[in-house]
Design a protein around this nucleic acid. Structure first.
Length: 502
RNA sequence: GCCCCCAUCGUCUAGAGGCCUAGGACGCCACCCUUUCAAGGUGGAGAUCACCGGUUCGAAUCCGGUUGGGGGCACCA
């Protein structure tokens, strides 16, 4: 691999989310790669909140981003540790909304040195120029009108009280850089227009503030999504104009929708919170995200965050985009769930199960559902029969549901009655899964029934469903009294159905 | 339209000139196990390595072109 370390500078990377929406899958993965890179190299990891777009930025989103980053297990050395909280680190403040004087100072410096100039063009004028360029099949870029203004024209605009934006004067030069992931990349900046760095209302723009902050925070490696690859020449032009050191850049592939377009809210579920709420484990999420565009080069696929940090090499990151494969995430989540101890799983399951189920019951439920869970939020449906009332369960009965193939309602009623008698003969202390199973198997055998056929109506009677956790474990958890009551109700339903068809 | 990036099974990927009649995983299909559903086990289908030309004794791997896909071209980030 190529040398990734600029000379004489300790490695510092950053993630710079914009609190204009909840933490996005793509941002999470970029944050993860930055984190892994920093950890692997022993560098410093900085979180900077890019909230210059005051109209769209909110504290709620900042909270969502920070909370979910923490949830994933990603930690940073500098930056706000808590949403709305105080900064940690010597290069603060770490919220761009609090760094406005710096940007103003640097913008003035560019103005003074002639690298930037005021632009009075109105949105309408710019739009007209753009349309004309499109009609002439030219590249849509600023025509440099305000660069050629006479002093009189300038004075006139100022008299009119029009507020100017500030544009960078982009030199027509070839920009070349050695991307950590893509290698040599070359752009022709003569194709770029003079872009705006500070809006007319005085608010500095993204391309400008990233560059200023990366320098101010001594960032050595800028690892970000491929969508920024084409923006890099702008950033380099800015750095040169400001006399900054150029960091190394690494552009990671995009995460794609199934149709291979850039992953979007429209086509996919993109908010990390949504996955969290459905009961995806952060460990599974991290493992999954890490492999979207990177692999250790072996056939191992289960990695903890620490193991990932140990193995991660930025040069091994792929160049091509990766489709977000929900099936694979589900599979991985299941693996992580099954790898948890019962106690650990009970703890994680707690928030997903209703309070009527006490902690001890949650722990007892775990062995019954562990192998059946894809997401934690799937748990309630699996064991709802435990807290549903007998009446609620009975409402789910349907004679059809209770009937195995080729058995009449009368026959089934008889079988269920037999089970009720067998189980009713047991006292509370003997009402355990192995005993229940033994009794029922014998009864089935005795009546000449296949065990499976005999169990089906019992399952429906007890859980209200044809699909359930193991029958006898479920019965044990439900308890003698309620099991017998439900069997009784089912017998009634079957008898009525039998009478109708007879 | 212009610029840039990318290209191995449906998907995530292994592969850095001969070990590849291309490996693994997910998904899919069988079968086994089995009280349902899962989990687990075994096996299978699935990629002429986008295409065309080179270079080479030899190319998925190197070079060029073509095609296809994606991204960027804002007083959003």
């Amino acid at each position: 691999m190529t040398d990734t370390q600029p000379a004489n500078r300790p490695i510092r990377v950053r993630m710079a989310p914009s609190p204009t929406g909840p933490l996005h899958i793509g941002t999470a993965r970029t944050s993860l790669y930055n984190y892994l890179f920093a950890r692997h190299a022993g560098g410093t990891y900085v979180l900077r909140i890019e909230d210059t777009d005051t109209a769209r930025s909110t504290v709620e989103y900042e909270r969502d981003i920070i909370d979910n980053l923490h949830w994933l297990g990603i930690t940073w050395d500098e930056g706000p540790q808590v949403a709305g909280g105080e900064d940690v680190g010597p290069y603060g403040p770490y919220r761009q909304s609090q760094r406005l004087e710096l940007y103003a100072r640097e913008a003035q410096r560019l103005l003074d040195s002639g690298h930037a100039y005021h632009c009075w063009c109105s949105p309408e004028e710019l739009e007209a120029v753009r349309r004309e360029q499109e009609a002439n099949r030219e590249a849509p870029r600023y025509n440099g009108r305000c660069l050629r203004l006479t002093d009189a024209e300038r004075a006139q605009f100022e008299r009119e009280g029009r507020r100017p934006a500030i544009r960078l004067r982009v030199p027509p030069e070839l920009i070349r850089f050695d991307d950590l992931i893509r290698g040599e990349v070359e752009f022709d900046n003569s194709l770029l227009g003079d872009f705006v760095i500070v809006r007319a209302n005085g608010v500095p723009l993204y391309h400008f503030v990233v560059v200023v902050d990366d320098e101010a925070m001594q960032i050595t490696h800028v690892i970000r999504g491929e969508d920024h690859l084409s923006n890099t020449p702008k950033h380099i032009a800015l750095m040169r104009a400001l006399g900054y050191a150029e960091p190394r850049f690494g552009h990671i592939p995009l995460i794609l929708n199934p149709d291979r377009s850039k992953m979007s809210k429209r086509r996919s579920q993109t908010a990390i919170t949504a996955y969290r709420e459905q009961g995806y484990l952060p460990e599974a999420m991290v493992n999954f995200l890490a492999f979207l565009g990177w692999s250790p080069g072996t056939e191992e696929e289960i990695f903890s965050l620490d193991q990932l940090a140990e193995r991660f090499e930025i040069g091994d990151v792929h160049k091509g985009g990766a489709v977000f494969d929900a099936d694979r995430l589900n599979y991985l989540n299941g693996v992580y769930i099954r790898n948890l101890t019962d106690q650990q799983l009970a703890l994680r399951l707690r928030p997903f199960l209703p309070a009527v189920l006490d902690d001890a019951s949650v722990l007892r439920v775990v062995p019954l559902i562990k192998e059946r869970l894809v997401r934690l939020a799937d748990a309630p449906e699996l064991v709802a029969f435990l807290w549903e009332t007998d009446a609620q369960v009975a409402a789910l009965y349907d004679a059809e549901l209770l009937l195995p193939r080729n058995r009449s309602a009368a026959e089934v009623a008889e079988a269920v009655a037999r089970a009720r008698d067998e189980l009713g003969a047991l006292d509370e202390a003997d009402f355990a899964a192995d005993v229940l199973e033994d009794r029922c198997r014998r009864a089935a055998d005795d009546m000449g029934w296949k065990a499976g056929d005999f169990f089906r109506p019992l399952r429906v009677a007890v859980t209200g469903r044809t699909i359930s956790p193991p029958l006898f474990g479920s019965m044990e958890l439900l308890g003698r009294e309620r099991v017998l009551a439900r069997l009784e109700t089912a017998i009634g339903v079957l008898a009525a159905a039998g009478a109708r068809t007879a």
